[in-house]
């Protein structure tokens, strides 16, 4: 089945002030559709964390959002350095963010587990030097 609504967003590199623009747009969209507030909240948290990763680690990338009759599918991807050990990266508290980013209150190592926690389906594909792709599925009901 094809999606009813399809949106694409650019995610800029290194600009924290613009991280969250895509998730904020998606939140407005879902509010207009009358999606349940709890679903909206989970979607925007998951998407924001994924966006933030692309800003901090991925050197910028894109987000593709598709809304179906019963679910939201989000793909956030970049062509950055990739993740060497996915299992390790998934661990709460594990972070490769440099000190200056942690000092800004980001990079606490909770991002990926937070995405997983808030989504119904979560797939992470990555290879060193080939970028990272995060697939998020959230059901509307």
């Amino acid at each position: 089945m094809s999606s009813i609504i399809k949106k694409e967003y650019d995610i800029p590199a290194n600009d924290f002030s613009l991280a969250g623009e895509a998730s904020s747009n998606v939140r407005k969209l879902l509010t207009q559709l009358g999606v349940y507030p709890t679903v909206i909240k989970r979607t925007s948290i998951a998407m924001y964390e994924a966006e933030l990763n692309v800003v901090i680690h991925g050197n910028g990338g894109k987000a593709r959002v598709e809304i179906f009759e019963d679910k939201i599918e989000i793909l956030v991807y970049d062509e950055g350095p990739g993740i060497e050990d996915i299992e390790l990266a998934m661990k709460e508290g594990y972070s490769t963010a440099p000190d200056f980013i942690r000092e800004m209150g980001f990079g606490a190592g909770m991002g990926l587990s937070n995405i997983k926690k808030n989504s119904d389906r979560f797939v992470l594909e990555s290879e060193p030097n080939k970028g990272t792709r995060v697939y998020i599925t959230i059901y509307l009901y």
């Binding site: 009813i4 609504i5 407005k28 969209l29 509010t31 559709l33 009358g34 999606v35 809304i67 009759e69």
Partner: peptide, 15 residues
């Protein structure tokens, strides 16, 4: 803010 009480109709309106 929602476009329609029925979510499916809201999606079509959004499109």
């Amino acid at each position: 803010l929602k476009l329609d009480d029925n979510m499916m109709k809201a999606m079509i309106k959004m499109q």
